[in-house]
Design a protein around this nucleic acid. Sequence first.
DNA 1: CGCCAGGTATGAT
DNA 2: ATCATACATGGC
Length: 286
Amino acid sequence: MTIPTCRIDGITHLDLAQTFECGQCFRWEPTGDGGYAGVLGRYPVTLHLERGSLLVHGLTRQQADGILAPYLALDEDYAAIQQLLRQSPALAAAVDYAGGIRVLRQDSWEALCSFILSQNNNIPRIRGIIRRLCEGFGQPLGDGQFAFPTPGALAGRTVEELAPLRSGFRARYLLDAAQKVHSGELDLEQVRRLPTPDAARELCRIHGVGVKVAHCTLLYGFYRTDCLPVDVWMRRVMGRMFPQGLPQALLPYAGIAQQYLFHYARSHPGLFREDAPVDSPAETGV
DNA sequence: CGCCAGGTATGAT
DNA sequence: ATCATACATGGC
């Protein structure tokens, strides 16, 4: 059995390193030659991007069109989105800094778990916890890769069994999410159909899911680009750059704006060292 | 070593 | 309602 390969041409507004290392996902690893290796559903995939041509190792062209293109939001008009965001000088700077960021359409369950594990945690350690989670509880896919564990694979476990993850106090939060989703007490496909405020309220029924984790789940797992997750970095950015909140015209893309601003702020810690005058952090989308 | 990390639950004002 | 604190662990 040979591993399929294909190529997608005409890619713009995409940089693999910027997109995979801007804090929205935690599983893609650099291959060492500019490419990235990861898992899409049950498919181990390796990507290389050169001069607008995306080389896809692990997917047929049909699979790439059906799975990868939506994941990378290749159908989105990023030229138009970035032009819109640039009406704000602060966002223009952030887009200039990393205009190759695209907000991914990730699996909702994986996004939920990932951001439960992200709370009061740092990104390198989050990556390690999620890697151990997949290796310990996900289905092996070959190529040294593992699927993200299903809710059912975690639902019956105990915190003791999750101890090898070293996820600390977050283990019981993860188990509560798995139990609620596996039992149907929380239906992610129903959440997908709910208006954003109701969807957020629904996710917050999970122990350990608050407003910020709910918004991350909605943005990254359900592609609700109107959701604006506000963490410590975004609180500084909003206080400093948008004390009145984001301009009205940008609200439908607040989550994408957030991704550029979050990455820019984290890459320039000196500019945002001290909390600027605080105020209502512009809770958009809820 | 001490500080902090893509927060949240909990108990006290 | 708003505010302080604990929480597990380890990256830096």
